[in-house]
């Protein structure tokens, strides 16, 4: 019965009391989190702080020992088609015998349904999504022949093709060059401006202020969350990263976004 009632429908992502453990050590401890719709949100934290685990738990890929997660008020099981997920690029074998367009079409497999093959319509939509990330000329390339940045853009196109309201990206800027990073950020900002919610696990503190408008700081627990200009403070950075890094990445006064 509870599944039918909306719980916190005003939040794109609502996480309450979430705890995840690997073995006995908590990877996430008592996470309470709200991300409003229409923001571009970074999740930052040091290595091992549980950023990827938070995404995986939210998407139901890891089973939490406690707590619950809602997207726009609904459990993730009822929101599958409306959430676009971009895993870490290194999580798959790029030597898999398939083309860039084929990978993008995988984003439509759910909509196409059981026992049916992707047809001309799916191919056209895959091409359009490739076009949005500037990769239409590489549609028929074997995916191992693409550069790291191009592979990342193919992954993003796969999430785009399903026209999801909420996009979740795990370190999309890892190992891509500056030009690709600029393309990806421009694309994500455009998606945000269209009213979608974009949630990104990010590791580069120096770009947080210019790229994002919402910030979650994580280190097993939630350190801080909210608009970037309120959350990106020396105290919070110290709390998340310890003293050393906080000194490097201290935001300049009055430089808030």
């Amino acid at each position: 019965m509870r599944d039918d009632t909306l719980h916190e429908p005003g939040q794109a992502l609502h996480v309450e009391d979430l705890t995840v453990t690997y073995g006995t050590k908590p990877a996430l401890w008592d996470i309470d989190l709200d991300i409003p719709p229409g923001v571009m949100c970074a999740i930052v934290g040091p290595n091992g702080s549980g950023k990827s685990t938070l995404l995986k738990a939210a998407l139901g890929l890891v089973r939490p020992v406690a707590g619950h997660v809602r997207f726009l008020g609904r459990p993730v099981g009822k929101m599958r088609g409306r959430i676009g997920y971009v895993p870490q690029r290194h999580s798959v074998d790029w030597d898999f015998p398939t083309t860039a367009r084929d990978v993008v079409a995988m984003g439509l497999y759910r909509q196409i349904g059981w026992f049916r093959r992707p047809g001309a319509d799916a191919r056209a939509r895959a091409m359009a999504a490739l076009g949005e990330v500037g990769m239409q000329d590489y549609a028929d390339r074997q995916i191992s022949q693409l550069s790291g940045g191009q592979q990342q853009r193919v992954f993003i196109a796969r999430a785009l093709v399903q026209d999801a309201q909420i996009l979740i990206l795990d370190e999309p800027m890892a190992g891509v060059d500056a030009a690709t990073e600029a393309i990806i950020i421009a694309l994500l900002k455009r998606l945000r401006d269209e009213g979608r919610t974009v949630i990104v696990v990010h590791h580069d503190l120096t770009t947080v202020q210019s790229y994002f408008d919402w910030l979650v700081m994580l280190n097993v627990r939630i350190i801080a969350q909210g608009p970037v200009r309120k959350v990106y403070t020396p105290e919070n950075l110290r709390a998340a990263y310890g003293r050393q890094l906080a000194m490097i990445a201290v935001p300049a006064e009055g430089n808030g976004l």
Partner: peptide
């Protein structure tokens, strides 16, 4: 095909 290429994504898609 999807499960062989990217099982995590398939799971996130609800397969």
């Amino acid at each position: 095909k999807l499960v062989s290429f990217d099982a995590d994504y398939a799971r996130a898609q609800g397969f």
